[in-house]
Every structure is written in structure tokens, then in C-alpha cells.
Design a binder for these strands. Structure first.
Lengths: 243, 243
DNA sequence: TTTATAATACTTGTATACAAGTATTCTCGT
DNA sequence: ACGAGAATACTTGTATACAAGTATTATAAA
């Protein structure tokens, strides 16, 4: 067996989490990073002994991951679906869909408080860049979008986000970690895009909103390309371990 | 305790379902019908003894219902959220959102097979009306929309539907049951609306699509009003049982 | 009567046990 | 060598057991 002791998911984010949550997050990261390959059949019993826990938290994790569409629960075993380019495109379809909806609602509403909150998060992101903390940056990046979505107080839009968020979070984590190593200069552009986003909300300029949304989308497209690179690096690394 | 032996969810739909699924469906119906009132705190142990099953399937059910936003999992006990008018509006926001998206995709695609399939389902619905089978009608109604959504083969849009479907299904079931008793004449209009829907897809007429979508939306609004009536009837019925 | 504290009852999350079902493998008769 | 069927190993879903934590209640001291 290859060395899999190192956890991909930030341990500090799990301080109060249950075993089930830990397994869920870690498993998700391993699947999305490509460490567990697409097509692999997961067995509850095997996972339980691998993670040295009982089947209860494993079952819980598999249910969650199935609802996120990254595994498929079948009669015998759970098959890893993983994320192909098709799925990446689909995830961003949904992101554009719900963020456009949210924007449309925000136009009708007082947003000064939201803008304040977003500015704070943006400052946090800058600090994270300064100290090269990829995980913290990712956390704030996800929080940025979640804050916007929460602002319209729409439980069923939030439901969609809740389903999308964990996968988004994993993608962003993996992408940012590799970018901090290789494409550090990207971050000023990311910050600019987020600032544009805030401006759009502040001025309630629908046109600017659409523009910034799509710029963010394009930016995210690049993130995905980065992810492909990091997947390749990772699988190369695993191969090297087998030498 | 009031008489709760009768199951709200159609037993025949659960022929191959696990205990967990049965509990989930039944609990959902009881919450959405108003039989279990909003604000009620559900205890795993109490539910387990009420349903005469262990905590395992109950836990499973509560997790699912929480992800559907009809209960809230808290430190101690699960609080029933239920559906206020706000949530009804939000559910249909999301329905409009995804069905519009789906329509947009269908315009670019071969739809003859889909139209055939939908026509078949519509025939089924007519038969269900003829024999006054509210449950069968509801089943076909839900299937109609699911078939359209599945046609674009988009796993993340399908994910949204998967989360929305159970609640939709429950709403439609309750509404149709009361309509078959009281507003039988409604059904010809419902059938017409669905036919319009099919025509829109067939002719790829975007304008007609939007029109039929909103007609269907308006129709569904009425369903909700019916639901309120049926909730009131139901709660009156419960009160009468206490006499 | 009020307030601290101890006892009790209930809660969640995890582990383990078991039943029923489904693949896989093995063995035996042809 | 090959196919039928038995034996075996694995699967899921449910029940039960247990540990650790949290509310509630009861008791006792001020």
C-alpha cells in the first residue's frame, strides 16, 4: 500500500467535527485530488479498517459523498465517479446559475452591510496571500461566495450551495495549494476580480455584476486547469513512491 | 396519542425500499401535511419507538430530511421547520430556475424521443384521472418533470432535482388527493398545460416554453393553496379525534 | 425561598452484532 | 475439461451496546 498517512483536508478545520465528518472530508479530498482514482470500488468494511473506525461513520460519509455526486452507491460497493471535465463544467453552470439569481435579488436590497462584510473577507484574503497560507486563502475565498449567497436569505438556494460547497471547497483548496507554489503572481488578479465583485454589488450595476461574475468564472476555469496539473503531479508522486 | 396508524405515503411505492427509506418518506409526508407541526422537536429515541424500529434508520431519515431543509438538526433533537409560504415560494424559484436552464439546453438538442416519452406519460396521467387515482397521477406528474430534467444529462442539475423532488412529490401527492375530491374539473386544465409544455419542447419555441413554464407555475401556485386547505382539514380532523 | 451541587434521565456519535442477501470459489459428477 | 450446485466469503441494512456529553430535576445548605 502507498503511504497515505498524510491527510489532505486541513486538520484545523475539523476541530469540533465528528469522526463521520472527518472521514467525509478526507475521502472527498482524496477522490477530487485523484488520489483515489475514478472507477475504484469502495467497500465499507475496507474503508472502515483503512480509517480505523467502525462502519457507522463510513456509511455516513458515503451517503454524503453520493449526494454530492462524486461516488455512486450501488448494490455492492460504492463506485468512485470523480470529476471529469464534464462535471467541472456542470459545477460552474450551477454556480453561474445561482450567483446570477442571487445578484438579481441583491439589486432590490440594502447591501451596505454585505459590502462591509465582503471587504473584511477580502482583507483577510490579502493577509493570507502575504503569509502564503493557501488553506486560509481558500477558506476565505469560499466564505466570500457563501456570504453573498447567504445575504438573500433563501433557504432553497442555500440548499443548492450546501450541496455544491464541499466540492467547491476541495477544488479551491487543491488549486490554491499548487498556485502558491507555482503561480504566485495570479493572486493579485484574483483579488482584483473579487474587488470588482464587491463594487458590482455596491453600485447595484447589473452589467458590472454579469461582467465580474464571468471574470470570476474565467478565473475559476484556470483553477481547474491548475487542478489537472496538480492531479498529474500527485499521481506522478505516487508512482515514484512505488520505485 | 392520536391515531397515526394510517400511512400517508403510498405503500406500493416502497415495495423494495429499506426501513430507512420508509421512515424518511412517511416522516416527510407527516411534516409537509402538517400532521407533525412546525416547531416540534423530534427525538431519535421517541421516533424509533413510534415507528417500532431502531435508531439506525431514524438517523438516516433525519439526515435526509435535514438536507431537504424540512427539519433542522440541532445539538439536542431535530426541530421541524415545515413549509411556510416563504419556503413554497423558494421551492418554485428553484423549479423555475432549473427548468429554464433545462429548456435552454433542450433548444440545442434532438428532442423527438423526449417528446414521445412525455406524450406517453401524459397518456398515463389521463388514465389516472379517468380512474381517479390521485397517487398514480402524482407519480406521473413528478415523472413528467423528472424526465424533462434528465433529458439534458447534467449531473449537477439532476443533483438539485434530487434534493427538490421528494418535497415536490409530497406536495403534489397531498394536493392531488384533495383535488380529486373537491376540484375534479381542474384536471383538464392541468393536462392542457402539460400538453403545452410538450409542444414547446417539440417546436423549440423559446417564447412558448417560457409561457408554458409560467402557466405550469401558476397552476402549481394553486396546488399550494389547495395544500393549505388540506392542512387545515387535516388538523381539524386531528382535533375532532380528540373529542 | 433561593442557590449550589449532585443525581438522574436523555442526547449524540461510534462500535459491534446479527440477519438476509449476493458474488465468488470450490468441488464433484459427467 | 466443463458445468451444476454446494460451500464460503463478502455485502448491505438493522438492531443493540456503550461512552461521553448535555439538560433537567432533586436535594441540601444558606
Amino acid at each position: 500500500m502507498t503511504k497515505t498517512n498524510e491527510l489532505l483536508y486541513p486538520t484545523k478545520w475539523l476541530s469540533k467535527a465528528s469522526t463521520g465528518d472527518r472521514v467525509t472530508s478526507e475521502l472527498r479530498m482524496r477522490i477530487i485530488s485523484g488520489m483515489i482514482e475514478s472507477g475504484t470500488v469502495l467497500s465499507e468494511n475496507k474503508l472502515a479498517s483503512d480509517f480505523a473506525v467502525s462502519r457507522s461513520p463510513i456509511r455516513e460519509a458515503l451517503k454524503v459523498l453520493a449526494s454530492e455526486n462524486i461516488i455512486r452507491l450501488e448494490r455492492m460497493g460504492a463506485t468512485v465517479v470523480g470529476l471529469t471535465e464534464k462535471e467541472y463544467a456542470e459545477i460552474y453552470d450551477v454556480r453561474i446559475l445561482i450567483e446570477t439569481f442571487v445578484f438579481e435579488r441583491l439589486v432590490r436590497v440594502e447591501t451596505t452591510e454585505l459590502v462591509m462584510e465582503l471587504s473584511k473577507i477580502l482583507e483577510m484574503m490579502k493577509v493570507a496571500i502575504k503569509y502564503q497560507d493557501a488553506d486560509e486563502f481558500s477558506y476565505q475565498d469560499v466564505l466570500f461566495h457563501e456570504t453573498i449567497i447567504r445575504a438573500i436569505d433563501h433557504s432553497y438556494i442555500l440548499m443548492i450551495w450546501d450541496n455544491l460547497k464541499p466540492v467547491m471547497e476541495s477544488l479551491i483548496l487543491l488549486s490554491m495549494r499548487s498556485r502558491f507554489k507555482e503561480k504566485y503572481e495570479d493572486f493579485s488578479r484574483i483579488i482584483n476580480n473579487h474587488q470588482l465583485y464587491i463594487d458590482a454589488i455596491e453600485t447595484k450595476d447589473r452589467e458590472l455584476m454579469v461582467k465580474s461574475l464571468h471574470q470570476n468564472f474565467d478565473d475559476v476555469q484556470e483553477k481547474v486547469e491548475d487542478l489537472w496539473r496538480s492531479q498529474q503531479l500527485l499521481s506522478k508522486g505516487v508512482e515514484q513512491q512505488n520505485d
